[in-house]
Deep mutational scan, measured.
Amino acid sequence: NQASVVANQLIPINVALTLVMMRSEVVTPVGIPAEDIPRLVSMQVNRAVPLGTTLMPDMVKGYA
């Protein structure tokens, strides 16, 4: 099963993503693939993302 990107903490809106904010985990439904974590660094989410939430492509500005 493919690992997805999961919030490692509350990720506020309009804050640049850092490695420490994200972890990889096998979850259902599948979200952004874990291998895209380096690409996500410095991008921003378009809504607050609670701890443990799977990041979906539509949550990250400029990802999709």
Rank of each mutant, 00 (worst) to 15 (best):
R39Y: 10
Q2R: 06
E35G: 11
T54C: 06
V49Y: 02
R39M: 15
D58Q: 14
P38E: 11
E25R: 07
P33V: 10
L17R: 00
S42N: 11
S24D: 06
G62A: 12
V5S: 03
Q9E: 11
N1L: 15
V45L: 14
A3D: 07
V60E: 01
T54A: 05
R23V: 05
V41T: 07
V45W: 02
K61L: 10
R23A: 06
V5Q: 02
P38S: 14
L55C: 03
E25N: 08
M43Q: 08
Y63Q: 04
P29D: 06
Q9F: 07
V27G: 03
V27Q: 04
Q9T: 13
A7I: 03
A48L: 12
T53W: 14
V45C: 06
S42T: 11
L10P: 11
A48M: 08
M59I: 05
I13L: 13
N8T: 14
L40E: 00
M59N: 05
T54V: 08
N8S: 12
A48T: 14
P29H: 05
S24N: 07
M56H: 08
D58L: 10
A16Q: 14
M56D: 04
P50F: 07
G52A: 07
L19D: 05
L17A: 00
L40C: 04
T54L: 04
T53F: 12
M56W: 05
A7L: 03
N14T: 06
S4D: 01
T53S: 08
R47M: 14
L10K: 13
M22E: 00
G62Y: 11
V41N: 04
L17I: 11
P33Y: 09
I37E: 01
A48D: 15
S4N: 00
M43Y: 12
Y63M: 05
A16Y: 11
M21N: 05
T28P: 01
V60Y: 02
T18D: 05
L17K: 00
A7E: 01
I13K: 13
L55K: 02
V20H: 14
V45M: 10
P50A: 09
P12F: 04
L17P: 00
D36G: 05
L17T: 00
V5G: 01
E25M: 10
Y63T: 03
D36E: 12
T18Y: 03
G62K: 09
V45I: 10
M59S: 05
A34P: 06
S24G: 12
T18N: 05
V30E: 15
N14E: 09
L51I: 15
E25D: 14
I11A: 01
V41Q: 06
G62M: 08
V5W: 03
V26K: 06
E25P: 01
G31A: 03
P57Q: 08
L10W: 14
V49G: 01
P12C: 06
V27A: 08
I11P: 00
V5I: 12
I37S: 04
I37M: 14
G31P: 00
I37A: 08
M21Y: 05
T53M: 15
N14W: 10
M56E: 06
Q44D: 04
N8I: 05
Q2D: 15
P29Q: 05
P50D: 09
M43W: 07
N1H: 13
L17Q: 00
K61G: 07
R47W: 07
A34G: 08
V49R: 02
N14S: 09
T54D: 01
V15S: 12
P12S: 14
T28R: 04
V41C: 08
G52M: 04
P50L: 08
T18E: 07
I37Y: 02
A64I: 13
G31N: 01
Q2W: 11
R23M: 04
K61T: 15
N8H: 08
L17N: 00
A16T: 08
I32W: 02
V30H: 12
A48P: 13
L51R: 11
P29A: 04
I37L: 10
P29C: 05
P29I: 05
L51F: 13
G52S: 07
P57I: 05
L51S: 13
A48W: 11
S42E: 08
T54S: 04
V6K: 03
N1C: 12
V27T: 12
P33R: 07
V49L: 11
Y63L: 06
Q44W: 12
V45H: 00
G31R: 02
A64H: 14
N46M: 12
L17V: 04
N14F: 07
V41A: 05
P29T: 05
L10S: 13
D36R: 06
R23D: 04
P33W: 07
D36K: 11
